[in-house]
């Protein structure tokens, strides 16, 4: 099993570097369209990490929702709003110092939190096919939050229609 573990480590390293590179590109590139495409790359990297954690359902839904819907929405917005042919934006604006401060605080907070949480290994067997359990739990134990989220999304949908009509 030694060899498999080494290979898994290597693959994780490559995926992590690619994901971080895409994330940096997203914020550093000047062309908004390129930034949106780099964001797609980041989403793919995150999906790959989910796959390595054996969360297949999450990985596939990540691709379906974040790339198939959210990234496409962002691309649509870029296409419809910017001066199409030359969208050279500056990477920084007046608020960069405050933004940097907020991000630094957030990063430190998360970092300290991750170090403090005792990550225990449950030791029990893991389900190989998690999808049926996810579905059952969503429609029994977590039915109320699930329905509330649906109503929220429906409200957002109707709101979008009303705004678009005016």
């Amino acid at each position: 099993m030694e060899l498999t573990a080494i290979i898994a480590q290597l693959v994780f390293f490559v995926v992590a570097v690619l994901t971080l590179a895409a994330a940096f590109l997203t914020v550093l590139v000047r062309n908004v369209f390129h930034a949106a495409l780099a964001l797609v790359g980041t989403f793919f990297g995150v999906a790959a990490i989910y796959l390595m954690l054996e969360a297949e359902f999450l990985a596939i839904v990540q691709v379906l929702i974040y790339i198939g819907a959210i990234a496409v929405l962002i691309l649509f917005a870029v296409m419809l709003t910017r001066g199409m042919m030359q969208s050279q934006e500056s990477g920084t604006n007046k608020q960069w110092a405050w933004a940097a401060l907020a991000i630094a605080v957030l990063f430190l907070g998360l970092f300290i939190l991750i170090l403090q949480v005792p990550w225990v290994h449950s030791g029990t067997a893991v389900y190989t096919d998690t999808t049926p359990y996810l579905g059952t739990e969503l429609l029994t134990t977590y039915l109320l939050p699930f329905e509330v989220v649906s109503v929220l999304l429906l409200a957002a949908l109707i709101g979008a229609f009303i705004i678009a009509r005016e």
């Binding site: 297949e56 596939i60 839904v61 379906l64 198939g68 819907a69 990234a71 496409v72 691309l75 296409m79």
Partner: peptide, 25 residues
Amino acid sequence: DLNLGLLFLLAMGSVATISVFMAGF
């Protein structure tokens, strides 16, 4: 033989939109 086969298929289908955007834009 993925146990999420059809979902995987639909996810891959949605990625194709990105290439259309890239080619068009």
